[in-house]
Amino acid sequence: MRKFSISPPVAAILLAIVLFLLSGFLPNGYGSDINVAIAQATNIVRLAVFLGVIAAGQTLVIISGFEGIDLSAGSVVTLTAILTYVTVKGEDDKVLLALLISLVVGALIGFVNGLGITFLKISPFVMTLGMSGVVTGLIIIINHGNVSGKVAPIMTRLIARPLSPDIPIPNAIIIWIIFGFLMWLLLERSTFGKHLFAIGVNRVTAKLSGVNVTATNLAVYTLAGALAGFGGFLVVGNTGVVFIALGQPFLFPSIAAVAVGGTLLSGGKGSYWGTMAGAIVLTLITSLLTTMQMPDSVRRMVLGATLLVMISIYGRQRGFRQ
């Protein structure tokens, strides 16, 4: 007899569907109108894209193990959003340049994180927390000169609008699906991904099997920084404005989305599909609570409680570790 078990990404998606169906009964829910329901569901997934992309880097560093975490993700998002904003200045042909800057700046910050963690042996928590402070300082310096800029029309079209008037699927969701596929390729179909899981489980084994643990670890933080940078680019494309606290609210949910998606916080096991599902669950809960006009304090409590409940369920299922 096999024990009844369900994979965490599926569990998270089921939770999301159940919650969404229940939300129809709310006084100001979608009621019985199927079109409204679909529109609402689509909108929630669209909103989840930004959290989902920011949580991608978080997924990687958490899989890499040894208390891997990226607390600088939130401030990197703000920084690259501002950089995009001031670079583009409303011109379509500057968009690619802005994207490149976002990726490179994010990667550089991640690289410094990686240097501190691998060579100076600073714990990821402390290193990335410190980096978050440094980046926030940078943002304030930049902001003092009064940010003037504008997002380009093409960004708004690509990120915030639907595919076409006839097909009401937002472009952001399309981007996210492609992005998810690339993440799957990276994690499950590349040597780097296999090495990443290996260092997350056991670094001695990994080294004695020829894995360059130092390089892999360095690469993973660099990549996580670049992905957070990409997140900043997307976020500003959606909001169209920048402010100092733009990215920070994504930080805790980005870790929570990874955990709700079933990635082991101790490393070595997990998936990006799970993180995507986690991002949808968290975004759904947040927007439901907003619809119910719950204050921010209640939203935080409910999000925290969801995280605890999901992780404890996974913990029971997991059985034994070595």
Partner: peptide, 17 residues
């Protein structure tokens, strides 16, 4: 401690190097 990735699959352990 040195030879295996315990929570990973047999396949991945075989192919790690």
């Amino acid at each position: 401690k040195e030879g295996l990735l315990y929570i990973r699959s047999i396949l991945e352990n075989f192919l790690l190097p």
